[in-house]
């Protein structure tokens, strides 16, 4: 899962997710600002993914199903966002929702096998990559208002796609030019 040295992956791992502790844990009070105190069960906290993802799958004891904490369905995967994606994937400002939307989605789905989310998001990527490729072919369009707005709405992964697309169109144009 992800490259160890990938900067985007590391940044995505730092995304804070809401979660709820299932047990009272001694000595963890500093997470909510009470140094030296225990952290009570049912406390709700925002913890970065690198911490919460491990605690969410680690059981309290060998013979119980309870994990240390439960992840609460985060805002960026709720029905409102999903419906917006379904309605019009191209016009969504993905970057303002999350700069690493696809990465986070991948990590979330690995943990919870959310088949519906996977389908919606892969469909979104297909629709948006068509658009990205269009803009990559026509550098003039990108300076228009709509183009500019679209470019700002891309998440980090899509930005990389856009760069690759622009570059390869440029190279193929040069190649054609050199043929005659």
């Amino acid at each position: 899962m992800g490259n160890y040295y990938d900067l985007d992956d590391i940044i995505a791992d730092n995304q804070k997710l809401p979660c709820k502790f299932n047990v009272t844990v001694p000595g963890l009070g500093y997470l909510e600002g009470n140094i030296g105190q225990p952290l009570d069960a049912n406390t709700k906290l925002n913890l970065p993914l690198w911490l919460s993802s491990v605690l969410a799958i680690c059981e309290v004891s060998q013979d119980s199903q309870t994990t240390f904490l439960d992840l609460i369905h985060p805002e960026f995967f709720n029905n409102k966002v999903i419906n917006a994606i379904r309605a019009n994937a191209v016009n969504i400002d993905l970057h303002s929702i999350l700069p690493n939307y696809y990465k986070l989605c991948e990590k979330w789905c690995v943990m919870f096998s959310d088949v519906e989310l996977i389908e919606v998001v892969s469909q979104m990527l297909k629709e948006r990559s068509n658009e990205i490729n269009d803009y990559g072919q026509n550098p003039k369009q990108i300076s228009s208002m709509a183009g500019n707005k679209f470019l700002y709405s891309l998440d980090e992964f899509e930005k990389r796609l856009y760069k690759i697309s622009t570059e390869s169109h440029k190279l193929s144009k040069e190649w054609f030019h050199n043929q005659d």
């Binding site: 001694p26 000595g27 605690l55 309290v60 013979d63």
Partner: peptide
């Protein structure tokens, strides 16, 4: 078998 007390240790490692 109860890991509750190990949680703090675990988080430090993470």
């Amino acid at each position: 078998g109860d890991r509750t007390n190990q949680c703090q240790l675990f988080i430090s490692h993470l």
